[in-house]
């Protein structure tokens, strides 16, 4: 069997298997906990949620 066929067949089996295994590993070691807190990452104490930025056109510019 040509080498390239082996690579192809191997990767068809290995890629999804590796994907599933790494997902299981990440989930078991708690890496996916409190996942959606990341939505707050663009904000910090300097520019918290609720503060608009870049309001420079129109009435706001004096």
């Amino acid at each position: 069997m040509p080498v390239i066929t082996l690579i192809l067949l191997g990767s068809i089996l290995l890629l999804p298997a590796a994907a599933l295994l790494s997902l299981r590993w990440a989930s078991r070691s708690g890496q996916l906990g409190r996942f959606d807190r990341a939505a707050l990452l663009p904000f910090d104490e300097e520019e918290p949620v609720g503060r608009a930025t870049d309001q420079i056109l129109g009435d706001n510019r004096r």
Binding site: E47, G50, A52, T53
Partner: peptide
């Protein structure tokens, strides 16, 4: 960032 509101659904 501009509107000061987190993304609707993470």
């Amino acid at each position: 960032k501009v509107i000061g509101r987190p993304i609707h659904s993470y």
